[in-house]
């Protein structure tokens, strides 16, 4: 038992994550070809516009559609349908918590690949300043609010119908993910009405920003992601948890250094054991880079599944010291 645990805690997290992310990427982006269908309430950007390959559908798409129904329908029988969709979404999320972001989300994975490309090219990363960080992390809540309010406005006939699914219009997933199955049709500006023109042009812009941003900043887009905002509202009861034992923490800051989401609390907070912050993507890099036995751990339904250990830390760092070819 102890052997197994040591092996898990000593895992080469980078490789493990790479493989798992690849697996889920294939499942969600190409799964459709193998008749995989995980439903339409997935708490991750399995883009619904990827008609041919999708192995399930990103919940934001049906959510926006549903909310845009006329109020009469929405607050009537269809309300139940909305509720049901949300319930499935919550259930999926309940199992893995933000692990969906660190291990499954195709957009997250693409950003990590871009990061890999950057490090291979020997280009350094950029970081936000602390002030920028605090302000930026509010944007996702704003996007979430708009994403709910605009369709509601349409349903109430307060806004024009061609705003349809406003977030999808500007979501980089819509343009990028279908490309992986050879579908470049989303990569256009829709000139049918003025609104669609503005929105799709904005979408182009966001996609460009997504690609460029992710090149310089690790997980650039995740800081603004409304899905992540929606996640955080539900994350308290989820089964997968990130825990910290502050007494064992030396506040060395190693975990904070490696955190793609620049979450300072992961290093500095020593009183609260439930350490997950709203931007966290549960990549568990912090756990892998903590040299203190048991200071950080991921638990599933209360059972520790991955824990920081001295041995694991040393093993991973030694690999870095001696890895000749890859800067990653």
């Amino acid at each position: 038992m102890k052997k197994i645990r040591d092996a898990i805690n000593g895992v080469d997290l980078r490789r493990f994550r790479f493989l798992l992310q690849l697996f889920f990427f294939v499942l969600l982006v190409y799964g459709g070809y193998f008749a995989v269908n995980l439903g339409q309430s997935l708490p991750t950007f399995a883009c619904g516009f990827n008609d041919a390959g999708r192995g399930g559908i990103c919940y934001l798409l049906p959510l926006q559609h549903q909310l845009a129904m006329s109020w009469g329908t929405l607050f009537g029988w269809a309300g139940l349908m909305v509720l049901q969709g949300f319930l499935f979404f919550a259930l999926w999320f309940f199992i893995l918590n933000k692990g969906w972001c660190g291990y499954i989300c195709p957009l997250g994975t693409i950003q990590d690949w871009i990061t890999s490309l950057r490090t291979r090219l020997g280009v350094r990363y950029s970081r936000y300043t602390e002030g920028q960080f605090r302000r930026l992390s509010l944007i996702k809540y704003l996007l979430l609010a708009l994403m709910i309010l605009i369709p509601l406005g349409i349903g109430g006939a307060l806004l024009p119908h061609d705003m349809g699914t406003p977030f999808c219009d500007i979501c980089p997933g819509r343009m990028i993910i279908p490309m992986f199955t050879g579908d470049f049709s989303q990569l256009t500006i829709d000139f049918s009405t003025k609104t669609t023109m503005v929105m799709t042009a904005l979408g182009m812009l966001v996609t460009g920003l997504f690609l460029a941003g992710a090149f310089f900043k690790k997980r650039f887009f995740c800081f603004f992601c409304p899905m992540s905002a929606l996640h955080y509202l539900l994350s308290k009861p989820a089964l997968l948890k990130l825990k910290k034992d502050g007494a064992k923490c030396t506040r060395c800051g190693d975990c904070y250094r490696v955190c793609d989401m620049e979450i300072r609390e992961i290093a500095d907070e020593v009183k609260e054991p439930r350490i997950m912050q709203d931007d966290c993507i549960m990549c568990l890099k912090c756990v892998a880079h903590c040299p203190e036995q048991g200071a950080l751990k991921a638990t599933f339904a209360g059972i520790p599944i991955f824990e920081s250990t001295e041995q694991g830390f040393i093993k991973r760092m030694t690999k870095g010291h001696h890895d000749e070819h890859k800067p990653q």
Partner: peptide, 20 residues
Amino acid sequence: DMTAVDEWLLNDMVDGLADR
């Protein structure tokens, strides 16, 4: 105390050392 490095590029290594 030990140094953690995320990307084995000069900037991250030097900052990592500074933190350590």
